[in-house]
């Protein structure tokens, strides 16, 4: 259970947003102020998290913990980027190019690794999960969409086939809509629980 103060703060901020949104546009000013506060506090929370990350790795280096060489890499890259950014400014094209030249290939390669992992995982899916309505429909759907992704069928340009393809392509909408509504309801329940201090951050 939360402490009374945190409970009150959470409830007040939530109620302020709710009331402001329901009485909009008259409550627009209140909403704008509260949301600006949220943006600032969230940004500071992000900075705190970054500081905590760097401090943790510094601690690893000082203690010489296993893998501290990687911590050194992290801290050095952090300091270098920070120094360059402070020197040139965030909007400087060279600085942006430098950051982009590092982040882009790494993230792209990491996403590329996902393809490789999925490829090896594809064979295991049915062995691990067995046969069920869900796995069979999943497998059939995946195969059909892979075939559609190849583009051979579309390029045949047969009207009936194209209609069938459009129908098949629209099928995921049904499941996705059900999932969205289900997730929405769950999110709603969760939001109420957070609002009334039954769950979420700030628990003591």
């Amino acid at each position: 259970m939360k402490r009374p103060l945190t409970l009150i703060v959470g409830l007040l901020s939530g109620l302020a947003v709710l009331v402001a949104m329901f009485v909009a546009p008259r409550g627009g000013s209140v909403l704008a102020v509260v949301l600006n506060w949220v943006i600032v506090v969230a940004s500071v929370a992000l900075l705190v998290a970054i500081a905590s990350l760097v401090l943790t790795h510094l601690r690893f280096i000082v203690k010489g913990r296993k893998g501290f060489l990687l911590s050194i890499v992290l801290v050095l890259s952090f300091i270098a980027t920070l120094a360059l950014g402070l020197l040139l400014g965030v909007d400087d094209p060279f600085f942006l190019g430098f950051v982009g030249a590092i982040i882009r290939p790494i993230e792209t390669a990491l996403l590329g690794l996902v393809a490789l992992v999925m490829m090896s995982a594809a064979m295991k899916i049915f062995r691990e999960r067995g046969w069920s309505v869900l796995t069979v429909s999943f497998g059939v759907s995946a195969i059909i969409f892979l075939i559609l992704g190849l583009g051979f069928l579309q390029n045949l340009k047969i009207p009936v086939l194209n209609e069938a393809i459009r129908f098949v392509e629209a099928l995921p909408m049904i499941g996705a809509r059900g999932l969205l509504i289900g997730i929405g309801i769950g999110l709603l329940m969760m939001a109420f629980r957070v609002l009334f201090g039954m769950e979420g951050s700030g628990n003591d």
Binding site: A16, V44, M190, G200
Partner: peptide
Amino acid sequence: PLAFLGGALAA
């Protein structure tokens, strides 16, 4: 502050 964030985002 986390409670503040949580409350506003939940709303």
